[in-house]
Design a protein around this nucleic acid. Structure first.
Lengths: 151, 151
DNA sequence: ACAGATTTGTTAGCATAGCTAACTAAATTG
DNA sequence: CAATTTAGTTAGCTATGCTAACAAATCTGT
């Protein structure tokens, strides 16, 4: 596996793997997106809310913007929508410039429900695999998570 | 693997697998999205263009809307943008109501370049895995494609 | 043949979500 | 305490999603 030919082959295969992975991710989310519309909360709001609910508690607007890979003005408006909808509360901090964003009880509930719906669709699709395939899939998702951290 | 306890366990694990898969897909695309901004073509336009370029040739607006899981008025405007940018051409068909949407040479080139950029980022991340892990990931993707067809 | 129904796509109008530029307010620094 | 830096908001642009209402072409039944 160290001679030139193997490396060239591996590179080409890696490119193809990357291409298929990218395409699979797009199609996966496109299908799951449908279930999200039931919650009446936009996708960016839902994703930001999930950081507050599942991502380990309250944070500032800037931290949230960074977590969501979005500019501060964009996050400012997303948060404004979440606050308007009663899903997030703005709290004070020692530093008067910062805000402390916290999910409300209703925000938590709505997020968990949406998450359940999405994941149920996917779990249903997964159930069509054999137990063996599902087991392998589970192992391999760990590899995927490693890859994503390297992106 | 057929007694009640195993089934319950498997269900819970499947839910968790689905959850992690969903989260992985979100984060994967969020990172790759950055590279797409270089092309100056919006994400919906890029995705629609990819159907025309990679998805086996020209189609009608309705077919494109269905492929992209979007309503016709939405696709109508996405196509208008692509035509304005010179990436897609509207052709006639026997049925006077339908349009035949074809990617232009420039549209094809722009799409392929963007695809190369995205996939290169991902391939680079994949290259940090061992050969064995990469091989297993390749297998995972086949399972994943099967799952997505079942969604 | 042709009146009505169906199919295909567009237009209008609304909300969300992305960006940059320019601003305000608070904290830090020299 | 004046100047700078940091955190967030506001304003204004584009793109993308939706539904409702429309126009044009085709199909259908008599």
């Amino acid at each position: 596996m160290t001679d030139v030919k193997s490396k060239r082959l591996a590179g080409g295969e890696t490119f193809e793997t990357a291409d298929r992975l990218h395409s699979a991710a797009i199609h996966l989310l496109r299908r799951l997106r449908v279930r999200d519309r039931e919650s009446r909360v936009g996708p960016a709001q839902l994703s930001a809310l999930s950081v507050l609910v599942l991502g380990g508690g309250p944070r500032s607007l800037g931290e949230l913007a960074e977590a969501e890979q979005v500019r501060p003005p964009t996050m400012s408006r997303i948060v404004a929508g979440l606050v308007r909808a009663g899903l997030v509360r703005r709290g004070k901090t020692e530093d008067g410039r910062r805000v402390r964003l916290v999910a409300t009880a209703r925000g938590s509930r709505i997020l968990q429900e949406g998450r359940r719906r999405r994941v149920e669709s996917l779990a249903h699709a997964l159930s069509s695999l054999s137990n063996e395939d599902r087991e392998r899939l589970r192992e391999l998702i760990e590899h995927l998570e490693k890859v994503i951290r390297n992106l």
